[in-house]
């Protein structure tokens, strides 16, 4: 089963490839080489907002999100990942009961 994460990056404009690369480096930094090999995909990337939808398997979700939380620097400058929403269903990233306006 996959988890889909809607995340954005707070630092500077970067390309999709660099975005994925930085996630891999952050995982490597916290959990080492073997964990850096966990499979994940950038499903969609929006360079204007530096926001992406990433999917990762259920088994690796905690480690993956943990390393996003602990990522503090990009090229020596402070950075942060904001996780907007997480769901096992891709469709629920569009809207859920929390954002639903009656």
């Amino acid at each position: 089963m996959y988890y889909y994460l809607d995340i954005s990056f707070v630092n500077q404009d970067i390309t999709a490839a660099l975005f994925k690369n930085h996630i891999i480096t952050s995982i490597k930094h916290v959990f080492g080489e073997i964990a850096a090999a966990i499979p994940f995909d950038v499903v969609k990337y929006d360079p204007s907002e530096i926001r992406a939808i990433v999917r990762v398997t259920q088994d690796h979700y905690v480690k993956f999100r943990g390393s996003l939380t602990l990522a503090g620097y990009y090229q020596g400058k402070p950075c942060a990942y904001i996780v907007h929403k997480v769901s096992p269903l891709l469709l629920s990233l569009l809207g859920d009961s929390r954002t639903y306006v009656h």
Binding site: V10, L68, T69, G72, A80, V83, V86
Partner: peptide, 8 residues
Amino acid sequence: FLIRNPYD
């Protein structure tokens, strides 16, 4: 920059 979401 170090503030994190409660869910994180």
